Amino acid sequence: MTTELVEVPGYIAGTWTVDPVHSGVGFTIRHLMVSKVRGRFGTFEGTVVTGADPLDSTVTASVDLASIDTGNAQRDEHVRSADFLDVATYPAMTYRSTGVRRDGGGFVLDGELTLHGTTRPVPLALEVEGFGPDPFRQDDPFKGARAGFTATGEINRLEFGIGDRATVPGGALGLGEKVQIVLEIEAVLQTA
C-alpha cells in the first residue's frame, strides 16, 4: 500500500477554536412534503486540530439545542419540547470525529453524532475553504491565523428518536425524516 501526501494550499497545523460570530450551524427539513423549513442554532462551540498530515486532523463540537431559531417562536418552542428535541432532558448535541479520508477531489469527515441520547455515525462532506492571516489580532495580525471549512451531511431524525411518522390528510408525512446539515465554520488558530 502506498501513502499519498495530502497537500492543502496555505495549510497550517495547529489547534483552532470555532469563531461563533463568523460561523453557522444550519439545517433544512421538509414540511408537509411540499416545502422546506430552514433553521439554525445560535450557540455552539468547537475545536479543530489540524495534524501535520490533514488526514490526521480531529474535530469536536457541541451545540446548545435550546438556541434553535427557525424564524418562528411558536415553532421553536414546539421543537424544543418533548415532542421533538426534548431540550430539558437532552440540552446539547455533540460531534466527535473518528477520521478524515479522501473522497475524489475532496474530503469526508467521519464522526459520531450524539443527539437525543443516541450516538450514531454521521459522515460529513468536507470542503477546506482556506487558511489566512487573522486581521482581528490587535497585538500582531501576523501571529494569528484563520481557517474556513464547510461541512454538509444528512441524518434521519427517526434514527435519533426525534418526532414520529405522523401524516396529514392525503397520507404525506407532516415532517420529513431526513434533515440536511450545513456547517460554515471559521476557526481561529490558538497561539501561546
Results as ranks from 00 to 15, higher is better:
residue 135 P to L: 11
residue 65 L to K: 06
residue 183 L to V: 06
residue 49 V to T: 15
residue 109 L to V: 08
residue 115 L to Y: 06
residue 158 L to R: 15
residue 77 E to H: 03
residue 88 A to W: 02
residue 41 F to E: 09
residue 20 P to Q: 14
residue 138 Q to W: 05
residue 81 S to F: 14
residue 132 G to P: 03
residue 176 G to A: 03
residue 187 A to C: 12
residue 175 L to K: 05
residue 112 E to P: 02
residue 126 L to I: 11
residue 128 V to F: 14
residue 112 E to Q: 10
residue 129 E to M: 14
residue 56 D to V: 10
residue 71 G to D: 07
residue 151 A to S: 01
residue 175 L to G: 09
residue 90 Y to P: 01
residue 172 A to N: 06
residue 180 Q to I: 07
residue 30 R to Q: 14
residue 188 V to N: 10
residue 146 R to I: 03
residue 138 Q to Y: 00
residue 161 G to C: 08
residue 89 T to G: 05
residue 155 I to C: 06
residue 133 P to N: 01
residue 159 E to P: 00
residue 190 Q to P: 02
residue 118 T to K: 10
residue 110 D to S: 09
residue 120 R to T: 12
residue 35 S to M: 02
residue 151 A to M: 12
residue 67 S to L: 11
residue 135 P to A: 12
residue 140 D to A: 08
residue 119 T to E: 13
residue 109 L to Y: 06
residue 23 S to F: 05
residue 167 T to G: 03
residue 177 E to S: 14
residue 60 T to R: 14
residue 76 D to L: 11
residue 68 I to D: 05
residue 20 P to T: 15
residue 177 E to I: 02
residue 27 F to H: 07
residue 176 G to S: 03
residue 104 G to Y: 03
residue 17 T to Q: 10
residue 168 V to H: 04
residue 157 R to P: 08
residue 183 L to C: 09
residue 20 P to G: 14
residue 100 V to I: 15
residue 144 G to S: 02
residue 66 A to K: 10
residue 68 I to S: 12
residue 96 R to C: 01
residue 169 P to M: 01
residue 141 P to K: 00
residue 40 R to E: 07
residue 80 R to G: 07
residue 115 L to V: 03
residue 104 G to M: 01
residue 154 E to R: 14
residue 62 S to K: 15
residue 113 L to D: 08
residue 138 Q to V: 08
residue 22 H to G: 01
residue 33 M to P: 06
residue 89 T to V: 15
residue 144 G to R: 00
residue 160 F to N: 10
residue 177 E to Q: 15
residue 35 S to T: 12
residue 73 A to L: 10
residue 173 L to D: 09
residue 100 V to D: 15
residue 133 P to E: 04
residue 124 L to M: 08
residue 86 D to H: 13
residue 164 D to K: 12
residue 103 D to R: 10
residue 14 G to Y: 00
residue 86 D to E: 14
residue 78 H to E: 15
residue 192 A to M: 03
residue 35 S to G: 03
residue 155 I to W: 00
residue 128 V to M: 14
residue 186 E to R: 13
residue 11 Y to M: 02
residue 168 V to S: 12
residue 79 V to L: 14
residue 64 D to E: 11
residue 87 V to F: 12
residue 92 A to I: 13
residue 90 Y to F: 15
residue 176 G to W: 01
residue 115 L to E: 07
residue 16 W to C: 08
residue 24 G to I: 09
residue 119 T to Y: 13
residue 185 I to Q: 05
residue 32 L to T: 11
residue 79 V to G: 04
residue 26 G to D: 10
residue 53 D to V: 14
residue 52 A to Q: 09
residue 7 E to L: 08
residue 53 D to M: 09
residue 140 D to E: 09
residue 74 Q to Y: 03
residue 81 S to C: 13
residue 1 M to R: 01
residue 23 S to L: 10
residue 190 Q to F: 04
residue 7 E to I: 03
residue 112 E to S: 05
residue 81 S to I: 11
residue 29 I to E: 06
residue 59 V to A: 14
residue 15 T to C: 07
residue 63 V to K: 04
